Computed example of a mutant assay.
Amino acid sequence: MSLIVRDLMIGNPRLAELQFGEEALGHNATLSGFQGQRHWTDHFPNGDFMEAILNTSFDWNGKRAPYLVATENDSLNGVAMLFGNLLQIQRKSSLM
């Protein structure tokens, strides 16, 4: 589920090999969300692991910028992360 959300956000060139050229480009997303009401997800996968693994700034390739993902209950945290990310981008561009 985490890989699917990441691929939807930024794209994956391997999808083009499978004849999914448009999906391979991704949506160029800055923030993504997942709807997971508790009564829908008590016995099914929910977005908690996906949110935790994508929001971190570390992965198997080392340090990286986090992919901003929020479930309904964490939407305010997601918006705060988005503003923090935008401020970092603005700060980096002003230093150049």
Rank of each mutant, 00 (worst) to 15 (best):
S2G: 15
S2K: 02
S2V: 02
L3K: 08
L3Y: 08
R6Y: 11
D7Y: 05
M9T: 01
M9E: 01
I10C: 04
I10K: 07
N12R: 07
N12C: 13
L15Q: 11
A16C: 07
E17V: 08
L18F: 11
F20P: 01
F20L: 15
G21T: 12
G21V: 11
E23L: 13
A24D: 09
L25V: 10
H27V: 02
H27Y: 04
N28T: 07
N28S: 14
A29M: 11
A29S: 13
T30Y: 10
L31M: 13
S32R: 00
S32C: 09
G33A: 09
F34Q: 02
F34P: 00
F34D: 01
Q35F: 10
Q35I: 14
Q35G: 08
G36S: 14
Q37Y: 15
Q37A: 13
R38L: 15
R38P: 03
H39E: 14
W40E: 13
W40M: 12
T41H: 12
H43E: 15
H43G: 12
P45H: 06
P45Y: 06
N46E: 09
N46W: 11
G47P: 03
G47V: 02
G47T: 02
D48S: 14
D48H: 10
D48R: 06
M50K: 01
M50T: 15
E51Q: 14
I53K: 00
L54G: 00
L54F: 03
N55H: 04
S57D: 14
S57W: 03
F58S: 06
D59A: 09
W60Q: 12
G62W: 01
G62L: 02
K63F: 10
K63A: 14
K63N: 05
R64W: 08
L68Y: 01
L68D: 00
V69D: 00
T71M: 11
T71Y: 00
T71N: 14
E72R: 03
D74W: 04
S75F: 15
S75T: 10
L76H: 08
A80H: 02
M81N: 08
M81K: 11
L82N: 01
L82T: 14
L82R: 02
F83V: 14
G84E: 13
L86Y: 06
L86R: 07
L86N: 04
L87D: 12
L87W: 05
L87C: 03
Q88E: 14
I89S: 07
R91P: 00
R91E: 15
R91N: 12
R91C: 02
S94L: 10
L95V: 04
